[in-house]
C-alpha cells in the first residue's frame, strides 16, 4: 500500500499515520511529501493524506488516530 503524507508546518500528521499503520499491522510505504509541486497535485490545504493515489483528507484540523485508521482501512 502506498501512503503519502502531505506535510504542513503546523500539524504533525505523519506521526499519527505511522502510529495508525503500526496498529493496523499492514504493510505500507509511507512517504512524507514536502515538495510543493507534488503536494499541489492533490490539494492546496495541508496537511493531507493520500492513500493509493486517492486524497482522503486535506486541511486543518488534522484527523485523529481512529479516523486515520478508518481512512487507511477503506483502501485495503
Amino acid at each position: 500500500m502506498e501512503i503519502k503524507v502531505l506535510m504542513s508546518c503546523c500539524a504533525k500528521l505523519d506521526a499519527v499515520v505511522e502510529q495508525a499503520v503500526k496498529e493496523l499491522g499492514i504493510d505500507a510505504n509511507i512517504e512524507k511529501v514536502t515538495d510543493m509541486q507534488e503536494i499541489m497535485k492533490y490539494t492546496m490545504s495541508t496537511p493531507g493524506l493520500v492513500v493509493n493515489g486517492k486524497l482522503k483528507h486535506s486541511g486543518n484540523p488534522m484527523p485523529g488516530l481512529e479516523r486515520v485508521k478508518a481512512m487507511i482501512k477503506s483502501e485495503v
Binding site: 503546523c10 510543493m36 499541489m40 490539494t43 492546496m44 490545504s45 495541508t46
Partner: peptide, 14 residues
C-alpha cells in the same frame, strides 16, 4: 474559506 497561514504558499500558487 478555512485557511491557515501554513497553507499560504500552496494556496497562492493554486
Amino acid at each position: 474559506t478555512p485557511f491557515c497561514s501554513c497553507s499560504a504558499v500552496p494556496l497562492f500558487i493554486g
